[in-house]
Write a protein that binds this DNA or RNA. Structure first.
Length: 268
DNA sequence: TCAATTTGACCGAC
DNA sequence: GTCGGTCAAATTGA
């Protein structure tokens, strides 16, 4: 595959590139923080940066999944039954909630999974359900985007891993159609601050509302426990040789991009 | 008072 | 018939 001029890239790809660049910058900031003596403030910053990195990659995965999903996507049940495709008569409760529980089981091709020691990914979610899953030690929690009322159909499922309860497996479905607002807010946050103070963005990081709090004992612990054991981190590492930014040429070397085939999406 | 969470019920997929 | 995803009333908390 030949190199592409950045300005010629499709919007979706630009968004991916932008998020990758943002994630790299954040990772660099995190590295800087970790090189300093560990303090409470530093731990907080490190955690915020970790969330920021997670959010960047979540956005990337969201965008990429959307591209592939266009071909294979079957409508996600959540919020997608605005039509009248539910033909059940609802005999038991015909008077109200005629479409309650009307949905199709999710297709795995429209989802992606990450594993992290926190439920948080920097996005705003509202919990709408919890289920005990057969043969699972821990219940599965269902979240939808807080901005569902604005048409955002992104949902996710979070479940603690049976073999390693400190970790949460998060499966995302759909993409954030409210992402423009989120990104705009983030840009404001980032650009409002002097470069030397980029770490102190004012965005409120929601508390980890359940499960263990993961303190960062040391910089090594952060890297080891938060990143190196997660599948997402492995994905991040695997991305490195696939896209190489050339500042001089102002282009991306896209060689090897077809290795993304394993992630079940396509570039258009 | 209002928004978020909890939890039992509903219902399609398997 | 069972399982899993979603709904929505009830509850909780800020």
């Amino acid at each position: 595959m030949s190199s592409l001029s950045y300005k010629d890239l499709p919007t979706k790809r630009k968004m991916v590139i932008g998020e990758l660049v943002r994630g790299k910058e954040t990772a660099t900031q995190l590295k800087t923080v970790l090189q300093k003596p560990v303090t409470d403030h530093g731990s907080v910053l490190a955690k915020e940066l970790s969330l920021k990195i997670i959010r960047s990659f979540t956005e990337i995965l969201s965008v990429l999944n959307y591209g592939g999903g266009a071909k294979k996507r079957s409508l996600i049940a959540a919020g997608d039954h605005g039509g009248s495709d539910c033909s059940g008569e609802n005999k038991k409760r015909p008077r109200v909630k005629a479409r309650r529980g009307c949905h199709k089981r999710r297709k795995t091709s429209d989802s992606w999974t990450t594993v992290f020691p926190t439920k948080e990914d920097g996005c705003a979610w509202r919990k709408y359900g919890q289920k005990i899953i057969l043969n699972a030690k821990y219940p599965r929690c269902y979240f939808r985007c807080t901005h569902k009322n604005q048409g955002c159909k992104a949902t996710k499922q979070v479940q603690r891993i049976k073999e390693d309860p400190i970790l949460y497996r998060t499966t995302y479905f759909g993409h954030h159609t409210c992402r423009d607002k989120l990104m705009a807010r983030q840009i404001i946050i980032d650009t409002d601050l002097p470069e030397s103070n980029l770490l102190c963005f004012e965005e409120k990081i929601p508390p980890v509302d359940a499960g263990p709090t993961i303190p960062f004992e040391s910089k090594e612990d952060i890297v080891r426990s938060d990143m190196s054991d997660s599948s997402l981190w492995h994905d991040m590492k695997s991305l490195e040789p696939l896209m190489v930014w050339s500042p001089k040429m102002k282009c991306f070397d896209m060689e090897g991009f077809d290795e993304f085939a394993d992630l079940d999406f396509t570039f258009d």
